[in-house]
Design a protein around this nucleic acid. Structure first.
Lengths: 219, 219
DNA sequence: TCAAAATTAAGTATAAATACTTAATTTTAT
DNA sequence: ATAAAATTAAGTATTTATACTTAATTTTGA
């Protein structure tokens, strides 16, 4: 069993990650925080195994929080999330002592892999950042780190818990019958949820649903 | 345009990779080799941009070949392939000077990303190997490298060119109508191919087709 | 060149998905 | 406590996929 604290200033993002993780047995999100300072308070009370923390947050950012945790030898693994494509913070995160680093593009599989690896004492850094690691590793070059520019765009729709659950199954290419069986609901209900998902995500087929889901980081 | 030489002792594997890459415009496999020695000969003639080379091969293995290439400053980027899950050769590949390292589990997307990155002078190492890189990077620990044990299992079926092409489209979640339009064939023909694929891969639905395809590295 | 393999595509019946609507229950939040 | 939101599920018509078979053309390899 892996206990997690999520720190992100965006409820939507927290919920997305929560849905993603809690779909999995063995992983529980036991608490949440909306900035780095709060994260420090929360983990001292909740004692999670892993802290998943976004970089950009008000009050105290994720990297500062990680540095604080490592400085004080607080017993928690840290998985730093960059919700943006930029690789700008990687080296800082590593220097701060993060156990893992994930980009927004991470698939569900990668997410779970990262959490499991970090929780069991390993390290996980996305393939995308390996260039940076390699540069430091191989030649010792220092990388210039600037402030990130992007801000996460709001979702133009909201999914219910059930819908998110069914989205996952649909994206696993399961048909309505199987989804229904898995969730002990009728096939017709599964159909409705699928239909609503298609509408909400404005998709007219599975491919579009998949790409929309990726676009909105629901996957 | 990226020109590639493939070095792998398995024709099936070479064909699989070829199908994967050549589906993409801008990438051409201009030559092939079935061992490290042959690879060196072939690249001196064909002058490819990238050499994709398997580690386990008779005569001269992939890492020795890469080391030879770098030693002689031959102008070719090297992407080392480990068709097995093991991470055992990563460090050796890095030390030999490889520009990239991919595991068999790599998705088509990752494959293309890796090829493009390496071809444009970047480095690409799968997320899976970052632990090893980090260990060396962070603490300087040396990793013990043993000989791999597995051997690649033969495919229990063979796909025709058209089938592989249609497999790709099917796995992109396209329906028969769209596949038919894309390939300028009738919907019925697309159906037949899909049907044959399901039979050959012993799948009874899309999920199974996907996992079979992954299993056999067709994706 | 000639047989074998591959590609094409039609036929037919059945099962499932799609595209809605309506509406009865449950759950949730204030 | 109650209104709003969510979940459930049925109805109906249409389209698409599935599971085959058969068979006419093309392509390819020896």
């Amino acid at each position: 069993m892996i206990n997690i604290v999520l720190a992100d200033d965006h409820v939507l993002v927290r919920n997305g990650i929560k849905a993603l993780l809690e779909d999995q047995t063995g992983i529980t999100v036991i608490d949440e925080a909306s900035n780095g300072k709060e994260a420090l308070e929360v983990i001292s009370k909740s004692k999670p195994h892993v802290l998943i923390i976004d970089i950009r947050m008000p009050e105290m950012n994720g990297i500062e929080a990680v540095a604080e945790i490592k400085k004080n030898k607080i017993d928690v693994k840290t998985l730093v999330l960059s919700m943006h494509d930029s690789e700008e913070y990687v080296v800082k995160a590593i220097q701060a002592g993060a156990d893992g680093y994930l980009l927004k593009g991470a698939s569900k599989e990668e997410f779970l892999k990262a959490v499991n690896k970090v929780a069991t004492g390993g390290k996980y850094f996305t393939g995308d950042v390996s260039t940076i690691i390699m540069n430091n590793f191989v030649s010792g070059t220092t990388i210039n780190i600037d402030a990130p520019k992007q801000t996460l765009k709001e979702l133009p729709f909201k999914l219910t818990k059930r819908e998110r659950q069914i989205l996952t199954l649909v994206l696993e290419l399961k048909n309505n019958k199987d989804i229904a069986d898995e969730l002990s609901i009728s096939k017709r209900t599964a159909e409705v949820h699928r239909f609503n998902l298609m509408k909400k995500l404005e998709a007219k087929n599975l491919q579009e649903l998949t790409s929309r889901a990726k676009e909105y980081k629901l996957i």
